[in-house]
Design a protein around this nucleic acid. Structure first.
Length: 326
RNA sequence: GCCGAGGUAGCCAAGGUGGUCACGGCGGGGGUCUGAAAAACCUCAGAUGUCAGUUCGACUCUGACCCUCGGCA
């Protein structure tokens, strides 16, 4: 059973490659972009769908809405899907867009659950999963598994700890789990998010009886799967920058500003987790007359370029990625 | 042309009665990464407009010059 993965830097044309692979292998795309998972964040996140596509939900579990986008022919798009099910064009579907709303929380663990569900679903239908996206954190967990115990977020704890200074968090961790504390590097030691997570794990361990960690395994360790992981990246930084600039212009032309406005009108807060997505904050600042449009665009571009660099730093440690330079 | 303000790294910017060649922020380079990840965090590099003078010593004082920004003309 074949599984393809297309990952890499932003703005490298991952989706296009994924579509080509899917067409040749009777496949569907499975989104692995942590932003396109949100409903309503369409233009700024660059979802590759337009009016011809329709969302079909196949499973709602908890607050997750798992489904796919299906390309329609012009006439079909206007009528009921059921009447035309057999006439739909044979075109790869896109799974795992629009799972949650921008104010809902979603973790890499959640992603792995959703993705595995869809992968099984497709393999059962003898279809080829083509996982596509640049959220390597999600991808890493999907491919290689999550070794730590499955300790869910403790929102009360997080809320309390969020008010504390880094030094205090360090002290707490040092007290309840000195072994973990000693292993922290300089970066993690000053990272409130990660300190809080470590404290969360340590205090859960203290409360629950320690069970032998049943090592959940990632896709890559499962027998019978042949997985190819492609990574796209630019050879020259100047090309990355111009690709990003061009894409932002296109997204603005497609109505990125209206989308930002619409999202605020829907009642979402600028602090909602989905709206930490690159692009929205500067657009909000512009809409509030805090900065010029030019400044907003600059900030957006800079943030994208910085993100692309972080992606590469993270991904290049993965020796299973087959790189294609652009 | 005159009056005023000012010229500190790619950008913004602090400073001091002259004395380890200078606080920060952004941007840039390099990293971290196992239930927030398009997040959060770590780390490195880089500067006193030009020329002269005073002084043991000037980025800091003096003068000239060159620019920039206001106002007057």
């Amino acid at each position: 059973m074949k599984i393809f993965v297309v990952t890499g830097q932003t703005a490298t044309g991952k989706t296009k490659l994924a579509f080509n692979i899917a067409k040749k292998n009777k496949g569907d795309l499975i989104n692995c972009d942590s932003r396109q998972i949100y409903k309503y964040l369409d233009v700024v996140t660059g979802k590759d769908i337009d009016k011809d596509w329709r969302f079909i939900s196949i499973k709602k579990s908890g607050h997750f809405d798992i489904g796919y986008y299906q390309k329609m022919t012009k006439t079909v798009a206007q009528k009921s899907i059921n009447d035309f099910k057999n006439q739909l064009p044979d075109y790869p579907k896109i799974w795992l867009y629009d799972i949650i709303t921008p104010n809902q929380s979603f973790s890499s663990y959640d992603y792995v659950q959703c993705a595995n569900y869809v992968i099984d679903y497709l393999l059962n239908q003898k279809k080829t999963p083509v996982i596509v996206g640049g959220s390597y954190f999600y991808l890493k967990h999907l491919l290689y598994g999550i070794e730590t115990e499955k300790i869910p977020p403790d929102w009360n704890l997080r809320k309390n700890l969020a008010r504390k200074k880094v030094k205090e968090l360090q002290k707490i961790l040092l007290t309840i789990d000195p072994a973990t504390y000693q292993k922290l590097n300089h970066s993690d030691l000053n990272n409130p998010h990660r300190l809080i997570r470590k404290i969360e794990i340590a205090s859960a361990k203290n409360q629950l009886p320690l069970k032998p960690s049943s090592r959940p395994q990632g896709l890559i360790f499962q027998k019978g799967y042949s997985i190819k992981i492609y990574g796209l990246r630019f050879k020259k930084k100047a090309d990355l920058v111009s690709a990003i600039k061009k894409r932002i212009e296109q997204r603005l032309a497609k109505g990125a500003l209206n989308e930002a406005k619409k999202i605020l009108n829907m009642g979402f807060q600028t602090s909602d987790s989905g709206l930490k997505t690159i692009g929205y904050q500067p657009l909000f600042a512009y809409l509030n007359h805090q900065i010029s449009l030019k400044e907003a665009i600059n900030r957006w571009q800079t943030a994208e370029v910085q993100y692309a660099k972080r992606q590469e730093t993270f991904m290049k440690k993965d020796k299973n990625i087959i790189w294609r330079q652009l």
